[in-house]
Nucleic acid binder design. Sequence first.
RNA 1: GGGGGCGUGGCGAAGCUGGUUAUCGCACCGGCCUGUCAAGCCGGGGAUCGCGGGUUCAAGCCCCGUCGCUCCCGCCA
Length: 602
Amino acid sequence: MLFSNDRLIPMKFLKRTHTCGELNASSGSAKVLLSGWVYKNRNHGGIHFLDLRDRYGITQIVIDENAPSELKETASRLKFEYCISVSGTVRKRPDNMINKDMSTGEIEISADDIIIHSSCDTLPFMVDGEAEAREELRLKYRYLDLRTERMQRNITIRHKTAFAVREYLNSRNFYEIETPTFIKTTPEGARDFIVPSRIYPGKAFALPQSPQIYKQLLMVSGFDKYFQIARCYRDEDARGDRQPEFTQIDIEMSFVDREDVLSLTEGMMNHVFEKTLSVKLPEAFRRLTYHQAMDLYGTDKPDLRYDLQMGDMTDLVKDSEFSVFKAAAESGGFVKFLNAKGCAGYSRKQITDLEETAKIYKAKGLAWMKVTESGIDGGISKFFKEMEKAIIERTCAQPGDLLLFAADNWKTACTSLGAVRSRLASDLGLIDRDRFEFVWIVDFPLFEWNEDENKWDPAHHMFSMPQAQFLDTMEKDPGPVKGDLYDLVLNGYEIASGSIRVHDPVIQKKIFSIVGFSEEEAMNKFGFLLDSFRFGPPPHGGIAPGLDRLVMLMCREPSIREVIAFPKNTAGLSPLDSSPSELSGIQMKELHIEFKLDEAEK
RNA sequence: GGGGGCGUGGCGAAGCUGGUUAUCGCACCGGCCUGUCAAGCCGGGGAUCGCGGGUUCAAGCCCCGUCGCUCCCGCCA
């Protein structure tokens, strides 16, 4: 029994017979009971309409003119988002009253009783999606925000995606195995979140940045096909596509090469998109090497929903009169170009804006020239009159085009012009929002030179296998070493990253030494992994698609916060529960910790 | 750590070159209304314009500072 609406209600009455999304013309004139929230409320005095909403849909309720006055009185007290149950009779709407925009639009419920389970205060924002509230407010009242159609849809797609992942991997004989979330702090990568130990004074657990080491240990254990939909934690600044805690579809396999991992991932993506969005993807995805991606698109996560490739003209202009290009070429740099088709009409202001975009990515400037019927014009064109023909040929320019140039070291020239490329694409409306363009980026360098510390850093992580042809030379010359590394990119976002791992302790030790990791340090931090490699480790590799980003793109949302039920804001705070929060003195004492704050931090 | 944008009743927005009582829609309160589905009509209440300081006869608007949110660079193997 439940006490509500000033009277006792038998529990039996509260059980719904149907959801708000399933009744239609074929439901006859059944007696039904629906439960949900008051979504819309249209009281005409004589006749009164309610739209009742639950997760499944919306059904129109009618309180007729000849309804009992007690019922009319109850209905008139209803406001937005009251939680109610309605019993009544399904009836077909008059022909001219059918709402074809509603799945239940052919019928309505003629109410004979209404129970108010709970009332609802004036809402901080409407949940009908008409006007979007400030994000801060949406997160503070996330439980209300989650009632909106948009969030209900997003969370549904997220569920279906996770389910399809499990379905697919299970069918391929993968086991879902959990790994610990209190682990040993690891030295590389992002900052760890730390959990101080109560039992062991002065010691602490870390939360995993990923299950990387554990999944490798599972390979040693012989669970040759593993996956986990795993929460990962990184204490870095948030972004639209980054949260301090996020979810990875973590996958690892033994006795495989790169092709096995890529094709498994392709199959999984095909299955997921088919099952959740009814979208058919290509069976195999395009591939670019890291170098190609940088050269053509200026990023290692190119958005291939539009083409707009960059080109190189270092060779053409290295002896030109234009000192910027000359200097770049002489110091081993490059001159990259981008043909902005049809943009010759751009104003000085528009070009300056593009230059500002390039400068964000460290470019010193953005050179330009226009192409007219009579040849190149404006900008830096006066330096290149005698090679006009070669330039036009190289850039495939036609009258009306705007040519843009970045001259710098290879990486800066590529990334800054790449930023201009993506800016142009959105300005010119080149992006087809309905497309899903996957591309593999392969052959990443294994090591990156760290200018600040004058040493080699692992470009990915320390457990990735160098490609076989570099094994003999990598210690002498780490720069050119390519790893068996791969990223999956979708619409300009990195949505998965993986590699074939090192399972040979000798190679592993070489890699540690190249990145300046001493043997003791390695043993101290990763000893348990290196130890395991003494006991018959299989060759293995894997990949980790980011569930949040994948679902974000499937939902065509601009931020992963839109597909996480209870996200943090960009400052890493939760407006919902106001965490992080202070600890009590007792808690601190038990954990043997003390906070030392600067004056400014208090 | 650095740069851009935003902050105006509960919510979303407008507010010009500084000038009368800060405007509009939704929500809220009261009334009317028999077929609506963004219901409609009439009436009403509700804002120290994020906060602090300054310039001025006069500041939502200009200046300085500060806080919050958000986007980006750095960071994120």
